[in-house]
């Protein structure tokens, strides 16, 4: 299933945050959206997943999601959004309970996603007992449990320290290698974007418009940090963003 955004514009009261966004998300690709803070990256993601309605333009689902898919557009949130009163297992079970699945089928799915995210031994643990990185792994496992057609990842690694971030990026690269999932990945971290994105969309400062789309052809598993080509890409992206970020930084908050 592909996603098509057509001429998306959105404002909060008088404040226009997005303007004229046209974008295609192709199946099996990770599209990273980068931009200065306040440029509407997260708003765009909420519009894509139907958590908000755009003032103008539409988001189209092109093609049917696979039969087994329980929740085509599935989010991974920056703050993990795990229920603190449920164990790891029950947190994943939460998103399956509203679907007509037998308890056995549910247990199979849970065991499967826990195994795929290397969490099996943490099944009966409460979120507060887990580190940030492990919490985000649980949230990713929960997202995988509903077999999404597109994962919508809202700065999933931004709340983590840089070492954990590195580990989780490796996990995500591994996961993509095995499952070829489709994702829209919002981040403000250029090295994350360059590590994980097949395509990087650079937004301008508010109101966010697409100012550049950069494709990276290097396969994900060959993108180590020492790769000079990637360093070059980061440099190009930073040049694009630098002035925008500076201007955005100096803007007064009027909300």
């Amino acid at each position: 299933m592909n996603l098509q955004m057509q001429n998306i514009g959105h404002s909060y009261e008088d404040l226009q945050v997005l303007d004229g966004i046209d974008l295609h998300i192709d199946e099996g690709q990770i599209v990273c959206i980068v931009g200065p803070s306040g440029c509407g990256k997260s708003t765009l993601l909420r519009l894509i997943g139907g958590l908000e309605v755009a003032d103008s333009g539409t988001v189209l689902m092109d093609g049917e999601p696979p039969e087994s898919c329980l929740n085509p557009l599935t989010y991974v949130f920056q703050d993990f959004a795990l229920l603190p009163w449920r164990t790891v297992e029950k947190n994943i079970s939460l998103v399956l309970e509203d679907h007509p699945l037998s308890p056995a089928a549910r247990a199979t799915i849970i065991d499967d996603v826990l195994r795929r995210t290397h969490l099996s031994e943490f099944k009966d643990v409460f979120p507060r007992q887990l580190s940030g990185g492990m919490k985000q792994r649980v949230a990713i496992a929960r997202a995988l449990a509903v077999k999404p057609a597109v994962m919508l990842m809202d700065e999933p690694l931004s709340a983590l320290d840089s070492q954990t971030r590195e580990l989780l990026m490796e996990d995500l690269v591994d996961l993509w290698g095995r499952e070829r999932f489709t994702a829209v990945y919002v981040t403000h971290n250029l090295s994350e974007a360059v590590r994980l994105g097949h395509r990087i969309v650079v937004l301008s400062r508010r109101p966010g418009r697409i100012c550049e789309v950069v494709d990276i052809d290097t396969p994900l598993d060959q993108r180590d940090t020492a790769n000079p080509e990637l360093a070059q890409k980061v440099k190009i992206l930073w040049q694009l963003l630098h002035d925008e970020a500076r201007a955005a930084d100096r803007e007064l908050a009027n909300v």
Binding site: L51, N71, Y75, D79, L83, L94, V95, E97, D98
Partner: peptide, 21 residues
């Protein structure tokens, strides 16, 4: 936490499930 409620909505939980769980 509104984030948790938004999470519930994003996974298509029913209204009753969101209230109960």
């Amino acid at each position: 936490d509104r984030g948790l409620i938004r999470m519930g909505q994003s996974f298509n939980l029913s209204w009753l499930s969101i209230v109960r769980k």
